[in-house]
Amino acid sequence: MVTVEMNQIVYQRPESLADMPTHYCPGCTHGVAHRLVAEVMDEMQIREKTIGVAPVGCSVFAYNYFDCDFVEAAHGRAPAMATGVKRVLPDRVVFTYQGDGDLASIGMGEIVHAAARGENITVIFINNAIYGMTGGQMAPTTLPGMKTTSSPSGRDVEQMGFPIRMPEMLATLDGAGYVVRRSLHDPKNIRMAKKAIRLAFETQLRGLGFSLVELLSSCPTNWGLTPVESLRWIEEHMLPVYPVGDYKVAQALAGLRV
């Protein structure tokens, strides 16, 4: 039996996470994603040299929750803004944190070109298959047949097109150093997600080009499901469309153990 001393700390807030309650809905995985990024920042001791770029979406206030310098971008423009920061301060760590509407719809141009340039930034990409902040409209990542407030009879692919798989697309670009998809629906996958986030930041630190980790995430409020049902929904419905996997891993990262 494992004994734990009464005053031994076994779990605490990472230093890189500011001490403040978040505005995220109960059961939303934005909080998990924030924590993973903060843990990685702690482990790599990069908090003091990191500049984050917040998006427009539910994570618009991400800047409040990380204890590092932050700037707040216009909708979809985070990769461009991050480029501006990074080009002036190439020795700092720069990351964006973006939702699927932000990154794969209005910001499609900016993300593709940042990747194509091999921009030395890290992108944390939250795919919840919906526009969370504006109340549950269809996103480019919304699943075929999925009901949203702007696809009330379900996404009809004949009319509204098909889901976009970003890592698969971006992996075709030579500038991409590390492009993967992970999921936040259970502890095992969360641990895998953290490793990927670590590798993405390692990619940047090593100057190996653009890095992106897509995280399959839940939106209980706008999906109309309980938090537990939402996690199951990710597994049952999102995973088949968005397979977890490594889509591009720069050769130089291959032997790296984190």
Partner: peptide, 24 residues
Amino acid sequence: RAFLQAESEVAAINMVYGAACTGA
């Protein structure tokens, strides 16, 4: 010093925005 041909004017001004935040 930094020069970059952006993919559009939308991107260019947002790069300028980010770079301006560094005080440069």
